[in-house]
């Protein structure tokens, strides 16, 4: 009897300790490192975990769903406190999420969502792609302040959801402002070299670029390529042609610092921060987070200290 009481007492003493963030073990199944942003997300997630004293178990799936499923199963077997998942595709997760639920391990989705019943995961932390396009469009509306402006648009990979949504958001923001007009729109495949090639043809097709007043690129890499094309055509990027893009990669901040670009909207690599916040709140007093946590789409312009941001970001793995 005494022994039993002692056991109960010790379990009760241990229980809150186990649920405190300090001793938490979290598994993170990452897609891979297909882009600089993805590499930065991994780096930031590891930093966030370290700062909070969370023991992070990291698994790189090398773009394969079966590797992610394997990783989640091994996290369940190890009895982690929570699982972070950046899903490579949207479908096919029901079974493994069910297993996690049976083991009472909360799953938090990062950066992308899945097509599965909402009760199978705790929350999804993603950015709003349409909103990002919206912020870019709004910046141009404010910067032009009613002056007429011909815009060229460098789209992402045709048919990809960032390309569709960032185009939509931008179009919504400039709708109703008759001074702003998109005169050419073509895909630059999200790459620097295609961004440069397509911008070259835009410049030639629009009277050597004299007819173009602003460039909107669906990502910073294409904008960086386009900046080179504009320079080679003898124009001043940032002045003759205003440039706004999305992602906030270090090289874009460098360009803004040099006056060669005007604005970028951050797709934050820190998806893990809000996820850990939600998790800690849940474990502390059972606060159930909303099913969708939207990350901030912050606008950076020449007013910010872009050199400092460049220095801070350049070692994140972009």
């Amino acid at each position: 009897m005494k022994l039993k009481a002692l056991l109960i007492a010790s379990v009760m003493a241990l229980a809150p300790a186990a649920s405190m963030a300090g001793n938490m073990t979290v598994g993170f199944s990452q897609i891979g490192s297909e882009s600089g942003w993805r590499a930065a997300e991994t780096t930031v997630t590891k930093q966030e975990a370290e700062n909070r004293g969370i023991n992070l178990k990291f698994a790189d799936a090398q773009q394969k769903q079966e590797n992610q499923i394997k990783a989640i199963r091994s996290f369940i077997a190890q009895g982690v406190d929570a699982i972070l998942l950046a899903p490579v595709v949207a479908t096919g997760w029901d079974e493994v999420l069910e297993e996690a639920k049976d083991a009472e391990i909360p799953v938090l989705l990062l950066d992308r969502t899945v097509d599965a019943p909402k009760d199978l995961y705790m929350t999804a932390v993603t950015s709003d792609l349409v909103h990002e396009g919206n912020v870019a469009g709004q910046w141009l509306v404010d910067a032009m302040n009613g002056k007429p402006c011909n815009i060229v648009e460098l789209q992402g990979t045709t048919g990809s959801s960032p390309a569709i949504d960032r185009k939509k958001g931008f179009a919504e923001a400039i709708a109703g402002h008759d001074n702003l007009k998109i005169i050419r729109s073509q895909t630059g495949d999200f790459t620097r070299s295609q961004g440069k090639v397509v911008m070259e043809s835009f410049l030639k097709a629009e009277d050597g670029g004299k007819n173009i007043c602003a460039l909107y690129a669906h990502n910073d890499d294409m904008a960086v390529g386009a900046i080179q094309a504009i320079k080679e055509a003898g124009l001043k990027p940032g002045e003759d042609i205003k440039i706004v893009a999305i992602d906030s990669v270090p090289d874009m901040h460098l360009a803004i610092a040099h006056g060669e670009a005007n604005a970028t909207i951050e797709l934050t690599p820190n998806m893990a921060g809000p996820a850990f916040d939600a998790l800690e709140a849940y474990l502390k007093d059972g606060t159930v987070p909303p099913k969708w946590i939207q990350t901030e789409s912050r606008l950076y312009t020449a007013k910010d200290d872009n050199m400092a941001i460049y220095e801070k970001k350049k070692n994140l793995g972009y």
């Binding site: 495949d189 620097r192 070299s193 440069k196 390529g225 080179q228």
Partner: peptide, 14 residues
């Protein structure tokens, strides 16, 4: 040539 053109080596896309 491709790397020199964009002043960078893009291993994913070059």
């Amino acid at each position: 040539i491709v790397a020199a053109d964009i002043k960078g080596a893009d291993a994913n896309n070059a």
